[in-house]
Design a binder for these strands. Structure first.
Length: 586
RNA sequence: GCGCCUGUGGCUCAACCGGAUAGAGCAUCGGCCUUCUAAGCCGAGGGUUGCAGGUUCGAGUCCUGCCAGGCGCGCCA
């Protein structure tokens, strides 16, 4: 309806210009939007306000000329002019009936749109290094990315969810070495655990399993281990040098084969854990794309070559640089180091080139706030490679500051003191956790009080929405008890009986679902859908308290049941997109 | 020092490419269950949208400068 009205206004103004009733003007970007206040009808158009200046007449006057010449379309009951010069449209009752019919026809597919035109979209999110379990910070990216992907899918895009597995870097070696050192501790060797190693309990558990599976196979002499290793930070040394030396020593003492066993073992178990956690959070991927794969397939070389071809690369002090400052970055970036090794950045160049080459027309890369400094150089790469910058979006998900009551919870994977996503799911539940995250727009910093989320779980908006759905189910369950029946067709036939303000409010809300899907998908803002569902549930609960559904008047009963059945369907479809379960009873 | 994000009732947050009287929830106070689930509903109080300018018919939204908080500024990943 929104786009139909937009087209209608456009045509009307055009024809008025041809008849010289309005001066010819440059094309103008006017809007049709949902009226915030229901006294203003359902839709409002601001075109007269925008034309006023160019034409030099009061906006109301222009609005009247336009309104007078609009051929009132089907489904519109009233056109009026209000306020400073808005043209307001009020939907006819019959328009609502048609929407309800469509809801029943399409059922769980209601809300699926074609605006995406089946265009392939690549959505990358979370992509945390597999050096430890996901924590609550990743949870926000997972909830947002998952909902966005599902939203785009519903909007008609062909969505590909991908997790970039950073499994070839130094951090992974620190992990392997950490596991091995814990293993040696368990085998009663005198180990001073490095300050820069991974200290989480999960490393202990991995080491324990390693002992169980391989017994003493990886034990070495303690003297060999620490001899000639540069001092750790607490001893006045450098923690980076210390750990790097230990990694080298581990490879040397264990030999390639045994070292790889530990390395792969740690990586696989942790990655499996991440997959499991995300799966139980309702987030699944089409592909887990590993950095290792980029390397082995020569993609990094390809990506760098591609960038070189653009002529924006140069060599200096033995390294290969990308002149990202040509594209707005604040400094140039190294691709290939002096020692011949590629940088992380080079891998990312290759990865994005690879995404593009796989045929994705839109690339969405959800990043945590700690990586936002990376955006300018990524954008520079996109531009240099000749990819349309508008097809590349990098939503930044801000941190959630964790609280336990009034106490701030410090998080650090290294120190091991953090709340895992797993713990969060176990504590507050998948539904509450996901909805809580999704309700906030990603760029908004948010406070997450674990205690409150737990204690007040019954006050969480998610239950409020789910309850609305369960209540409707309950009403229908009781039909037979009261020896009543519901005939949908009778309900639609008696649709005009729905004249109560509560009923109109609910209808209005239901009728805007499609637009919410479209807008939130277009803007990459799933939180809009969350807020909408809250509001829809609100209208339903008010209606529920004000009127009876299971009443003697058969015509009215059918009409009302038809209305709430439609509400139920919309709530279910919306929650589905957000990854929240849809209970039939609570 | 530079860059990005944020600043909206006591608290947590909305406000759909700038629109009409800035909206919800929590908390507080007052009402509503012999009636379809009270995990609900109805009502009340509570605001100079961080501050100061600017742009225009119109600014929470855009621009400039401050203030405050978060994050980032490696040939690390």
């Amino acid at each position: 309806m929104k786009s139909a009205l937009h087209e209608l206004i456009k045509q009307t103004v055009f024809s008025l210009q041809e008849q010289d009733k309005l001066p010819a003007l440059q094309s103008i970007q006017f809007q049709i939007e949902r009226a915030r206040n229901k006294q203003h009808g359902d839709y409002a158009c601001n075109i007269a306000l925008l034309l006023a200046k160019q034409i030099g007449k009061p906006p109301r006057e222009i609005a009247e000329v336009i309104a007078k010449h609009i051929q009132k379309p089907e489904g519109i009951a009233d056109i009026s002019i209000a306020g400073p010069g808005f043209i307001n449209f009020t939907l006819a009752q019959d328009a609502y009936r048609l929407i309800l019919e469509e809801i029943f026809t399409k059922a769980d597919k209601y809300g699926y749109l074609t605006v995406g035109a089946n265009q392939p979209v690549h959505v990358e999110f979370v992509s945390a290094n597999p050096t430890g379990p996901l924590h609550v910070g990743h949870g926000r990216s997972a909830a947002f990315g998952g909902a966005l992907a599902d939203l785009l899918n519903v909007a008609g895009y062909q969505v590909h969810r991908e997790y970039y597995v950073n499994d070839a870097g130094r951090q992974m070696h620190i992990l392997a070495t950490s596991i091995w050192l814990r293993y040696l501790e368990l085998c009663d060797l005198p180990i001073t655990f490095p300050s820069n190693a991974y200290k989480g309990d999960y490393v202990f558990n991995l080491a324990k399993d390693l002992v169980a599976d391989h017994q003493q196979k990886f034990v070495v002499q303690a003297d060999d281990l620490f001899t000639n290793i540069p001092a750790d930070e607490p001893d006045g040394g450098d923690k980076e040098q210390h750990i790097d030396a230990l990694i080298d020593r581990a490879k040397q003492l264990l030999g390639t084969e045994n070292y790889d066993i530990i390395f792969t073992y740690g990586k696989d178990i942790i990655l499996d854990g991440i997959k499991y956690d995300l799966h139980s959070f309702g987030v699944d991927y089409q592909e887990w794309f590993s950095e290792d794969k980029l390397l082995k397939h020569g993609f990094i070389e390809q990506g760098v070559q591609q960038l070189k071809k653009t002529g924006h690369c140069y060599e200096r002090t033995g390294a290969l640089w990308f002149r990202s400052t040509d594209f707005g970055d604040d400094k140039d970036r190294v691709l290939i180091r002096e020692n011949g090794q590629h940088t992380y950045f080079a891998a990312d160049v290759a990865y994005h080139w690879n995404k593009f080459k796989r045929g994705f027309r839109q690339i969405i890369n959800v990043l945590g706030a700690d990586h936002h400094g990376y955006v300018p150089r990524l954008r520079a790469v996109i531009k240099a490679l000749g990819i349309d910058p508008d097809s590349f979006d990098v939503p930044i998900v801000q941190f959630a500051t964790l609280y336990r009551g009034k106490e701030k919870v410090q998080m650090s994977t290294r120190s091991g003191s953090f709340v895992t996503l797993r713990q969060l799911i176990d504590d507050v539940g998948k539904d509450a956790a996901r909805f809580f995250y999704i309700m906030r727009k990603p760029e908004q910093h948010m406070d997450f009080d674990l205690e409150l989320a737990k204690e007040q779980s019954t006050n969480n908006p998610v239950y409020y929405i789910q309850y609305a759905h369960a209540r409707i189910c309950s009403v229908f369950r009781q039909l037979s008890d009261k020896k009543m029946q519901w005939h949908k067709e009778q309900g639609l036939a008696n649709f005009a009986k729905l004249q109560e303000p509560h009923e109109i409010d609910l209808l209005r809300s239901i009728s805007s679902y499609i637009e919410i899907i479209e807008t939130s998908a277009r803007n990459h803002e799933p939180h809009m859908l969350a807020h909408y569902l809250r509001e829809l549930a609100d209208y339903f609960h008010s209606y529920y308290n004000a009127h009876q559904f299971l009443i003697a008047d058969e015509d009215l009963r059918n009409a009302r049941l038809t209305l709430i059945a439609a509400a139920k369907q919309v709530i279910a479809n919306g929650l589905q997109i957000l990854g929240v379960s849809v209970p039939e009873e609570m």
